[in-house]
Write a protein that binds this DNA or RNA. Structure first.
Length: 377
DNA sequence: TCCCATGATTCGAG
DNA sequence: CTCGAATCATGGGA
């Protein structure tokens, strides 16, 4: 077994200050890759048995220690990652943090948005479509994440084993292994960040598409417009539907409460700006509502005062043109049944139009009597 | 293609 | 929070 050690490689000039034995060992290490496996095994064994091996090993250990320390020093400062935190926060907000749990962004946030038109079914379709896509993204994200994590685990185990194996031949301290594991995790977390980033991008795209669709205005259905207009013109003295009234109108028109609010906001301002333009419309609805109100009053028996957009008549609106009863808006306002007498305090027209803050006056908002706020006590 | 109607959004005030 | 007001953006008719 001495043979390989005794036959040095002539091409390599021995370093002057070193002892020849050390030089030999080093040379052998350097050329170990040039040999066949069997040869290398034999040489490995020879090296292990060499009398200089422990000394050389300890020197290498010392050098290694210094190297590792410097490597660690370099690695320390790549830690806090604001971007990763942002991505994580966004994924968390979008309900991506857990595999298949209905996240906040998936249902709740979407459900609270207004519908894109007077068709509630469209709304449901869009929501389910959105949820399906969200779920798809979540699924892909988690499956990829799992893959990366598994790969990371496997690779880490592999490298750790390799290093442990090598530690028998060269100095590999636990610290170094730990450091290497850290490097591997760092690399994989970079990949994970890319995954998170693309997931976020996908979410943004989905979201913007959905919001674009939502923003796409669709006119309300005829029924919705009628319901709203009837209420508006029959409550012209105080066109501020209470929360209950809004809900009722929303239900009847097949739209959301926020759409009702939007509609009334728009209507009030536009009516005020150009009352003349709405005269014809007002006439139509007031005559209509007068008939309805009369009917309703005739029919009402229990305390619930059925005002014009009678909540009881959930069916199609009786298109009683009833002749073009030419009622002015003032007459209409005074026609509103108001036993309590407190619903006309806004003096028909001009009341709410005169910059009257609705909350502070007879706004039905505070009136618990729901949709018939004008008519009930 | 233009123009008006209209639903939605934004912003500041209260 | 709701409101008025201004504005945006789209639908739909001429």
């Amino acid at each position: 077994m001495d043979a390989p050690l005794r036959s040095p490689w002539p091409a390599q000039p021995p370093p002057a200050p070193r002892r020849p034995d050390t030089s030999d060992v080093l040379q052998q290490i350097m050329t170990i890759t040039d040999q066949s496996l069997d040869e290398a095994q034999a040489r490995k064994h020879a090296l292990n048995c060499h009398r200089m091996k422990p000394a050389l090993f300890s020197v290498l250990c010392e050098i290694k220690e210094k190297t590792v320390v410097s490597i660690r020093g370099i690695q320390e400062d790549h830690l806090p990652d604001a971007q990763l935190m942002r991505l994580d926060n966004m994924l968390l907000a979008e309900g991506m943090s857990r595999p298949e749990k209905r996240g906040r962004g998936g249902s709740a946030a979407v459900a609270s948005t207004a519908t894109p038109g007077g068709c509630p079914n469209d709304n449901n379709i869009e929501h389910s479509d959105y949820r399906a896509k969200l779920s798809q993204i979540r699924q892909i994200y988690h499956s990829e994440l799992e893959k990366y994590e598994q790969a990371c685990r496997e690779f880490t185990t592999h490298v750790t084993n390799l290093l442990r194996e090598q530690s028998r031949m060269r100095p590999v301290s636990p610290k170094e292994i730990e450091c290497m594991v850290g490097v591997i995790h760092g690399k994989f977390s970079t990949i994970q960040m890319q995954l998170k980033q693309s997931t976020c991008e996908a979410l943004m795209t989905l979201r913007s598409r959905f919001l674009d669709a939502r923003r796409k205005r669709r006119n309300f259905s005829k029924q919705a417009t009628e319901v709203l207009n009837e209420y508006f013109y029959s409550h012209l003295s105080n066109p501020y539907p209470s929360e209950e009234a809004k809900e009722e109108l929303a239900r009847k028109g097949g739209i959301t409460v926020s759409q009702v609010s939007n509609w009334f906001g728009n209507k009030r301002i536009r009516y005020k700006k150009n009352t003349g333009k709405f005269q014809e419309e007002a006439t139509i609805y007031t005559s209509k509502s007068t008939v309805d109100a009369t009917k309703a009053r005739a029919l009402e028996s229990q305390g619930s005062c059925l005002s014009v957009p009678s909540p009881g008549s959930s069916g199609p609106f009786p298109l009683t043109s009833a002749g073009d009863t030419f009622l002015t808006l003032q007459t209409l306002a005074f026609l509103q049944p108001s036993p309590g007498g407190n619903c006309l305090q806004s003096q028909a027209r001009g009341g709410w139009q005169g910059a009257m803050p609705p909350q502070s006056t007879a706004s039905p908002t505070g009136d618990p009597s729901s949709i018939n706020s004008d008519a009930s006590n």
